[in-house]
Design a protein around this nucleic acid. Structure first.
Ligand SMILES: [Mn+2]
Ligand SMILES: [Mn+2]
Ligand SMILES: [Zn+2]
Ligand SMILES: [Zn+2]
Lengths: 137, 137
DNA sequence: AAATTAAGTGCAATGGAAGTGCATTTTTAG
DNA sequence: CTAAAAATGCACTTCCATTGCACTTAATTT
C-alpha cells in the first residue's frame, strides 16, 4: 500500500481513504471501467465523489479516459511513465462485442496515420471491436 | 433531383418531401452533421422525424454514423458503392480541434491493425484529431 | 491546542442527447 | 373511394455527464 501512497503524493494528489480504495479498485481490474462499475463496487460512496476522484486522477495523469464507442466513458490506470497528459495516448483499445468489455492494448501502439495535405494530425483515437481473447477461447 | 429519387427508390426508401430535403441537405454539406445541425436547418420539422429519417437512411445504407469522440453522433452520406452496412466502414475520419468539424477522408482507408493472439478484429474506428485544411491555411 | 483556511465529500438538481409510445396525418394499394 | 400501411409530430422517458451548494474532514496558522 505504501507504494500507492507514494505514487499519489508524487503526482500531487492528496491521500484520502476514498482515493486509495478507488485506486486499488482500478489497479485490480484488468479492464477499463465505467463510473457505474465503480459506483457498484462502492455502494456507500456518492457518484459525484467517484466522478471527481477519477477526474482528479485523470488531471494528474494517472488515469486516462477511453471512448470505446459505447457512449459510456471508461477509465483505466496509465502505465508507468505513460505521459498521456503530455503526448497523445498512443496505444490502442479493444472492445469485445461479446462480453462488452474494453481493454488497453498498451503494447500495441497506433501506427502513423497519413492525412491529406493541409491537415495536421495532433491526436488519434483507435478502437478495435471484435472478440476478445477470453471470449474467443 | 431525379437522380436522388432514383437512388432512394433503389434502396427501398419511400420518397417524401422531408426525405428529399434532408438528403439534399446532407449532400450539400461537405462535413458530417449532427442531428441538431439538421434540426436547425429545418426548424419546422420535428426532431423525431429527422432522427428517424436519418436512421432509415442509415439502415438502408446511404448514410453512416460517425463517432468522432465529441459525444454527439454525426452523420454523413456514404460514397457510391460504399457498402458500409455489409463490410465495416473502412475510411478514417478527421475531427478539427479548431472549427470542431468532422470530415470523412474517404480516400484514406484504415490500415490493417494487428491485435494480440486470441483477439479477433471485426471492426475498427479510427478518428484523427488535429487541424483541418481550412483552419491550417 | 484552538482557530482559520482549504480541500474533499454528499445531496440535489440541471442539461444534453438518444430513444420510445401513441395519436394523427399522409401515402399507397385494392 | 376506402382500407391498410407508412410517415410524422408531440409528449415523455431514460441515461449519463456535470454543476452548485452545504457540510465534513484535513491541513495551516496563530
Ligand atoms: Mn488505454
Ligand atoms: Mn465517413
Ligand atoms: Zn469478450
Ligand atoms: Zn477546422
Amino acid at each position: 500500500m505504501k507504494e500507492v501512497e507514494q505514487l499519489l503524493e508524487s503526482k500531487q494528489i492528496r491521500i484520502t481513504a476514498m482515493r486509495l480504495l478507488i485506486y486499488k479498485f482500478l489497479a485490480e481490474k484488468e479492464v477499463a471501467v465505467t463510473l457505474s462499475d465503480i459506483e457498484n463496487a462502492f455502494a456507500k460512496a456518492d457518484r459525484t465523489t467517484l466522478y471527481r476522484t477519477v477526474k482528479t486522477f485523470e488531471d494528474k495523469g494517472i488515469v486516462h479516459q477511453i471512448d470505446d464507442g459505447t457512449g459510456i466513458t471508461k477509465y483505466a490506470l496509465c502505465e508507468k511513465g505513460c505521459n498521456c497528459e503530455i503526448e497523445t495516448d498512443l496505444h490502442l483499445h479493444f472492445h469485445c462485442n461479446n462480453c462488452n468489455e474494453t481493454v488497453c492494448l498498451t503494447e500495441h501502439k497506433i501506427p502513423q496515420i497519413k492525412v491529406p495535405n493541409g491537415f495536421v494530425s495532433e491526436n488519434v483515437n483507435l478502437v478495435v471491436k471484435g472478440i476478445c481473447d477470453k471470449c474467443s477461447a
